[in-house]
Simulated scan of single mutants.
Amino acid sequence: MILSGCGTSDPLGGTGNCAGDGLIVGSANFPESETVANVYAEVLRVNGFAVDTKLNIGSREAYIPALRQCAISVLPEYTGNLLQYLDNGATATTATDVDTALGKALGSDLAIGTPAPGEDSDAVVVTRATAERWNLHTIADLAAHAAEVKFGAPAEFQERAGGLPGLKKNYGLDIAANNFVPIADGGGPATVRALVDGQVTAANIFTTSPAIAQNDLVVLTDPKHNFAAQNIVPLFNAAKKSDKALATLAAASAKLTTTELTKLNEAVSGTGKTEPRAAAVAWVAAQGLNTPIG
């Protein structure tokens, strides 16, 4: 069953091939995914693998079929979102529960490596001034001020389980419809600017965004795990998984903390605008991963 899709045409315009020892590292079409994919490619090369890359493929609807068909061999994924893609009825949110559920949802043609400690998860973020004025530490602390809160997030945040419905259910944070401000950049610059300029009081921004530190923003803690864990994990076509590849990427994953992911994002998306491959090569060297793993 592992090999059942390996001779069919793939979504990238070629024919998948599960044979051979070489690996093709893929990525989704956003900078963090491309950068981590380059980290994977670099450490695999250092450890003797023949590596090609197919980056910026697109969404899961494009790259999961490509992975199943061996058009790519491995790419960085996010545990919580991958679980939801594979099982849209999944309710797990803690890292342990997500990993357990994901193991059951992968099927026979996909396999994961060791998740990194770092994750790029949804968060409720406020300015330092707001946090100090209302003595905010957790999302629950914001609930007492809900009537005063204008909340900025993508439009779908109003409806999805981990969005406004989850914040109301888990923390009593009830945002009125006229206090929700839809912003369509996925927690990017427009969302950050709306928060910093006071157009919104709180916003949905991802935890590895360099803008959090750059603007001295405060991430409110989520002790009830409203937002699913999103640890970065290597996702393989199961036929391309090997003990050596798993060990090699586990060594890289161990270094990919949330802080280090944020640094990589800052290098690529900050003022320096380093190319993802150059940022990855520099990071691999700085982490001592530029020599073969013992």
Rank of each mutant, 00 (worst) to 15 (best):
G166M: 07
A116K: 00
H145I: 11
A161P: 11
V126I: 08
G163D: 01
P115G: 03
A146P: 07
A95V: 02
L167G: 03
P154C: 12
A144Q: 11
T138E: 06
A123T: 13
W134Q: 15
E159H: 11
K168M: 11
G107F: 03
W134F: 10
H137W: 13
A105D: 00
A101V: 00
K150V: 04
A95R: 07
L136P: 00
E148W: 07
L167Y: 05
A153K: 04
G172M: 10
L110M: 06
S121N: 08
A129L: 08
R160W: 14
V125I: 15
A161E: 14
L110W: 15
A111G: 08
P154N: 12
I175A: 06
A123W: 01
V98Q: 00
A116W: 02
G118P: 02
L167W: 11
F157R: 00
R133S: 11
E148H: 10
E159M: 14
E159T: 09
G162T: 08
D99P: 06
A146V: 08
G113A: 06
G162H: 05
R128K: 14
E159L: 07
G118D: 05
E119M: 14
V126K: 01
D122W: 04
I139V: 14
F151S: 02
L102M: 09
V124I: 12
I112A: 09
H145R: 13
D97W: 06
P117Q: 15
K169G: 09
G172Y: 10
Y171H: 01
F151T: 02
S121V: 02
I175W: 01
G172W: 13
L164A: 04
N170T: 08
E119R: 13
Q158R: 05
E132I: 14
I112Y: 03
F157I: 05
A105N: 00
T130E: 08
